[in-house]
Computed example of a mutant assay.
Amino acid sequence: MAVKQQKTHFNSIELDYEEESPLIEYNRLDINELEDGDYYSGKPELSNVETYSYDNDGKEVTKHRIHLILIDNEEEEYLDIRINLKKPEEIQKRIHHKSKLYSLCCGLMELENPGVTQDMNIIKKVDLGEFREFINDLSEMTIRVKTEFSKDFTYNTFVVTQVKA
Rank of each mutant, 00 (worst) to 15 (best):
K4T: 09
D137Y: 04
V163Y: 11
D137V: 05
Y40E: 05
L15P: 03
R82D: 12
S99G: 02
E112V: 13
L111V: 02
S150C: 11
Y78L: 04
Q118C: 15
G58V: 12
T142W: 10
K151Y: 13
G115W: 05
F131V: 13
V163H: 11
E130T: 15
K63T: 02
V61D: 04
V126K: 00
D119I: 03
Y17L: 15
Y54G: 01
T117A: 11
T62D: 02
E19Q: 14
I83R: 11
N136E: 03
E130Y: 08
D80R: 15
D57K: 10
Q5R: 05
I69T: 15
L138R: 06
T147I: 02
D80P: 06
F158I: 06
D36V: 01
Y102W: 07
R28S: 01
E33K: 09
K87A: 10
D127V: 06
K87E: 14
Y155T: 05
A2F: 08
K87D: 10
Q118E: 15
D16V: 07
L23M: 07
L104Q: 12
K7W: 10
S99Q: 00
L138W: 07
T161D: 10
G42E: 04
Q118Y: 15
K43Q: 11
F158M: 03
S47T: 13
K125S: 14
S41C: 06
Y17I: 09
S150E: 09
L85S: 02
T142N: 08
C105F: 05
F131L: 13
K124F: 10
Q118N: 13
M141I: 14
F134H: 08
P88D: 10
E19P: 09
D38Y: 05
H9K: 12
K125G: 09
I31P: 02
R28M: 03
E14A: 13
R65A: 15
G107D: 07
K59F: 11
I31D: 03
V49E: 00
H97N: 14
P114R: 04
Q92C: 05
V159L: 11
V49C: 00
R94T: 15
I83Q: 08
P22F: 00
V145I: 10
K98S: 15
L101E: 01
E18T: 06
P44Y: 00
K124T: 15
S47E: 13
E112A: 14
R65K: 15
Q6M: 09
L70V: 04
E130L: 09
Q6Y: 09
D57T: 08
K124R: 15
I135E: 01
L128K: 06
S21F: 00
P88L: 08
V116T: 11
I122P: 03
M109C: 11
T161W: 07
F10P: 00
E35Y: 13
Q5N: 01
V49W: 00
V126Q: 01
E35H: 08
E50V: 07
